[in-house]
Amino acid sequence: MISVQSADFSVEKECRWLNNNASDGAIVTFIGKVRDMNFGDNITTLRLEHYRGMTENSLKDICNEAKWRWQLGKVRVIHRVGTLDIGDQIVFVGVSSVHRKVAFEACAFIMDLLKTKAMFWKKECLVDNERWIEVCDSDSEAAKRW
């Protein structure tokens, strides 16, 4: 289940949803937040844009591939768009599975591919400037392991 939305999300609510499958013994989540600094510069806000339809399809493809690779119970991805302030939640990735190793691997896989293949555009607003953010080399390297 995926959502692209401007509204914030409740980590507690999402964890409850992941936790209602008695067969699953593991739940792994990742929450990404807006940092106050990047590349040594102070960030004031972060603007995330997307192309409706294309973004959701890219996220569905990533989740479907995770389900194909691992035996997962539930998968939940939420990604926010719009203007976000420092400390705001950006992304939630959660998976449930019978075993923890599978859940950890699948969550990392989804996040690694989301950073490199999902159709989002990020603009950092600085005190006196703004800049578009491209995929980092470290994110590309992390995605290659899959």
Rank of each mutant, 00 (worst) to 15 (best):
R47S: 13
K13Q: 13
K67F: 01
G87H: 03
A103C: 08
N19I: 02
I86T: 07
V34E: 02
V11W: 03
D8R: 00
K101A: 15
F9M: 08
K67W: 03
S97M: 10
D85P: 09
L48C: 08
T29A: 08
C107L: 10
H79R: 12
A26Q: 02
K60I: 15
G94C: 07
I2E: 03
L59H: 03
W68K: 12
V127P: 00
K74S: 13
K33N: 07
E49D: 15
L18F: 02
R80W: 06
G87A: 12
C125Q: 08
E14W: 03
F9W: 01
I31R: 04
G25S: 08
W17K: 15
V93L: 06
M37C: 01
R131Q: 14
N57R: 04
T44G: 04
R52F: 09
A143R: 07
A103G: 00
A106P: 11
K115N: 05
T83N: 11
K33D: 01
E124H: 11
D8F: 01
S6V: 11
Y51L: 07
K123Q: 12
C15M: 07
I27L: 07
E134L: 10
F39L: 04
I110P: 10
D139H: 04
W146K: 11
R100M: 05
A22I: 11
D41A: 12
L84T: 05
E130F: 13
L126S: 00
V93M: 06
S140P: 04
R80H: 07
V127R: 14
K117S: 15
F9Y: 12
T116P: 04
G32M: 02
R16Q: 02
N38P: 04
V11N: 06
A106F: 08
A22V: 12
G94Q: 12
D112W: 11
H99F: 01
N129F: 12
H99W: 00
A143C: 14
N20L: 10
R52Q: 11
M54W: 07
D24R: 01
T29K: 12
E65T: 13
